[in-house]
Design a protein around this nucleic acid. Structure first.
Lengths: 343, 343
DNA sequence: AGCTATAATGTAAGCGCTGTCATATACAAC
DNA sequence: GTTGTATATGACAGCGCTTACATTATAGCT
């Protein structure tokens, strides 16, 4: 099994040179005579030698391995980010390991220990809106970690989190969505999902309110429901809103935090006898692979997650300290339609 | 940054002992006096010391890191497997890194090199049905890799692949599915997706034919379409089948390789004016998170992917050489119904 | 031929741990 | 006191590389 790996010494004696020379050809240094290089390469070939990245790491103090922390790979949104990051890392010769979100916000003794012991060359963290108390733990963990390795954040990061990051301009996106709906004549537009505290200029609520203001519509508290980003939460939220409102006040359009929430909302609408998009337009965010296959196909926003992941890796390795904003694209499908005035 | 990690020497001098002693308390050996242990622990605390897993790995010849290779994380099926594996690995103190499928079936010079250089403690490979030529490359790569690290396979592995593995008994599952449909009166049952060569007793075609035989139904070649496991492929396959058959021969039920394919089939059916489940029952496999949110909710088979991933890790680390078969459960939803004879 | 600049190669000291072996100390039995 | 037996601790040699630095070979001069 992993016992008898051949070492640089084996190659050296096989090729009749010193280990330093082997090391030189291994790392492609130029000051090796062609003849020697050839001899060494042959020996490597013959003995099927693969240098140990472990030993290499010990001296070079670099492991060529990166880590990524995200809340839940089962949400394809994160799977896309991971994929983009992994592929980019791979291209650049790095390995990508997944660490669970719990590595950060547990209050166990130094949750980040495992990350530090691994001596990663960098860490990507997909931040998630979290309740205040967890937030504190996360910030603390991140600040510890950054003393040991570069850290890049993905997602909307409060401005006081002083980290390089790449995120979608959710505010602009949301403003555009609201505009999209108001132009279709919608005036009762609900926004479902997310957490309450929202002072980040990039974040959704900012754009939502701007969008409403653009159309001279009032902000109506009962059309804003907070909650987690799952389908169940989405369904529960819309259920609650509809059940709590007289029918004449029911929204004609609902914007969901993400496609999962949108799926829950569609479910809820269906159960309340609302036709989509006839009585209720629904728009999601993330453009998951299943969005086009829902009934009706779900209008959503593609936020270029793979590209986001890849870009995060680039920032990580280049050491640039900037915050970047990613592109996004509104994918118009059948779940949104002009408001139905004729009833 | 990752510069000045404190080392075991720092701790030793801080605590006024030798590095051997520090190492002992680090690894929890018992032959250390309580007083000394305390001194060392205090020093560790004070200097915020984290041992380097790299240096440790050099001597101990174990990296505590595992790898997993899978075709496509964007398919939630694999994301579930990954998640299960990652969580189990983490529990056991291991790190899990993702490597792309291309690490195996590229014909580039030794695609597995990166894996070997990393000195992984084990590797999980989710095999995918692949065309014959690729298959050869994969087998070769796997046989190289196993010389360096234990390898466990996930998925249906041809019997001549001599590896420990954990897989769902697709044949039994498929037989059950066919039975489920025949009991509803279906006689024209299509099977869509997968590759042609199928002599593995665990694999779908075997069960499909058994299931038909159980009900004394003939195997009809035109009801069996091969293809990739994507929604697009599923749609194309059913399109082709329907377009090539007179309406009276159209199947009344279709079994899809997986939920993605099923989603494509539903799309195709819809476009051909077939109501689901009135004119066509559809059943998928994998029970993706979105299955309940499709219209109609998709009947599928839950194959316990997370558990599968976790089990693979256990096999990997225990060194057991057996092949295991996983549970599965038919999730009845609305996309299947008794055949509609009344027309 | 003698001498120097340059290219090619070798020597050896780490990197931060583990693990073996040797040493030191303490205490009991004689 | 001596010897014996644990028990606690330290010294040190690796693990498989990288990388100064030292050494040697080669070629280009005068």
């Amino acid at each position: 099994m992993n016992s008898d790996h051949t070492t640089i010494y084996d190659i050296a004696s096989e090729a009749g040179v010193s280990i330093a020379t082997v090391s030189r050809v291994l790392r492609g240094e130029t000051n090796v005579s062609p003849a020697t290089r050839e001899k060494v390469q042959q020996a490597i070939e013959r003995l099927n030698y693969r240098p140990s990245s472990i030993a290499r790491g010990l001296t070079s103090k670099t492991t060529h391995s990166l880590g990524i922390i995200l809340p839940k790979l089962l949400n394809p949104h994160y799977a896309m980010i991971f994929t983009g990051a992994q592929e980019e890392a791979r291209k650049l010769g790095y390995t990508m390991s997944l660490f669970p979100w719990a590595s950060l916000d547990t209050d166990a003794y130094n949750p980040a220990a495992m990350l530090i012991e691994r001596r990663l060359d960098g860490l990507i963290v997909c931040v998630e809106y979290s309740p205040k108390d967890h937030d504190e733990l996360v910030r603390e963990a991140l600040n510890t970690l950054r003393r040991y390795m570069p850290v890049v954040l993905i997602g909307c990061v409060p401005p006081w989190y002083d980290f390089p990051a790449v995120a979608c301009d959710n505010a602009a996106m949301m403003r555009r969505i609201v505009q999209y709906l108001t132009r279709m004549g919608h005036e009762k537009i609900a926004l479902i999902g997310g957490v309450k505290e929202d002072t980040d200029p990039l974040r959704r609520d900012v754009g939502y309110e701007k969008g409403l203001a653009d159309a001279k519509l009032p902000y109506t508290a009962s059309y804003r429901v907070f909650g987690k980003g799952t389908a169940e939460a989405g369904k529960a939220a819309l259920d609650q809103m509809l059940d709590g409102l007289k029918r004449e006040y029911w929204p004609t359009a609902v914007i969901a935090l993400n496609d999962l929430v949108a799926m829950g909302c569609m479910q809820s609408a269906r159960e309340h006898g609302l036709g989509i998009p006839e009585q209720l337009s629904v728009i999601g965010c993330d453009d998951l692979f299943c969005a086009p296959y829902l009934t009706p196909p779900l209008t959503s926003v593609n936020t270029r997650q793979q590209q986001t992941g890849a870009r995060a890796v680039q920032l990580l390795l280049s050491g640039e300290q900037k915050r970047e904003t990613t592109d996004w694209e509104l994918m118009e499908r059948a779940s949104c339609a002009p408001v139905h005035t004729g009833i």
